[in-house]
Amino acid sequence: MAKRISYSNILRTLFAWLIALLLFFPLLFLIITAFKTELQAIAVPSIWSFTPTFENFSEVQDRSDYANYAINSIITSSASTLLGLLMAVPAAYSMAFAPTRRTKDILMWMLSTKMMPAVGALIPIYVIFQSFGMLDTLGALTIIFTLMNLPIMVWMLYSYFKDIPFEIIEAARIDGAGLWEEFRHVLLPIGMGGIASTGLLCFVMAWNEAFWALNLGSANAGTLATMIASYSSPEGLFWAKLSAASLMAIGPIVVFGWFSQKQLVQGMTFGAVK
């Protein structure tokens, strides 16, 4: 059967493309700017044809030790994700499978902490880390990223676990499974999709975190997010280098996200076990 092409379809497609381009444009501009010289970058109106240069990237690498920032990002993101899962999985498990009358309240309370502006807690947290001598350490960032993501992790895992019929877990108990076996052989494999997508999301959120990273650890423990910021300060703005730094900072996570896309989507739909 021939596909009928209607005007409304064409219009809708064009409209969708327009929106998509509009959303993508800043990123495109960033990518293009990263390959310009500083002069070309500040030219008004924008220059669209130029010979691309890699100068910015090498300069960023020379000026700030990219690898160091990248390693800090990798360490804090992975450690906070693991630590978060270690706490959120048992919490979500007990809330989903052994709820009390207060469980819903606790969940709401956890979510409500995310509604407070982070800056509201900055001073006390700063002082706490200061008195423990932890300012500008990877440990401090890991802890703060974990705490920052914990409510979301518990919520996500809770809703995944809620979808697992409790009778399957009861069946395992009757079959002789203790707590560990029940977790290892039943909850983990069935809930893997949900656990993986929760972990991935929190990894990305920790990677992109800038507020706490800037305030608690910009010199030694700086993550890639703080590297970007360092290009917008004292000596004035350097658009091209800033763009190159941004590209280098978001590059790994975009690639990572691209490859885990399947896992993410699978995780979102895996709940449908009957």
Partner: peptide
Amino acid sequence: THPSKRDLAMVFQSYALYPH
């Protein structure tokens, strides 16, 4: 006693088979 230590077997209305 915990269910795992009672040495009973149960057939559930929903069957509750391990889907994986």
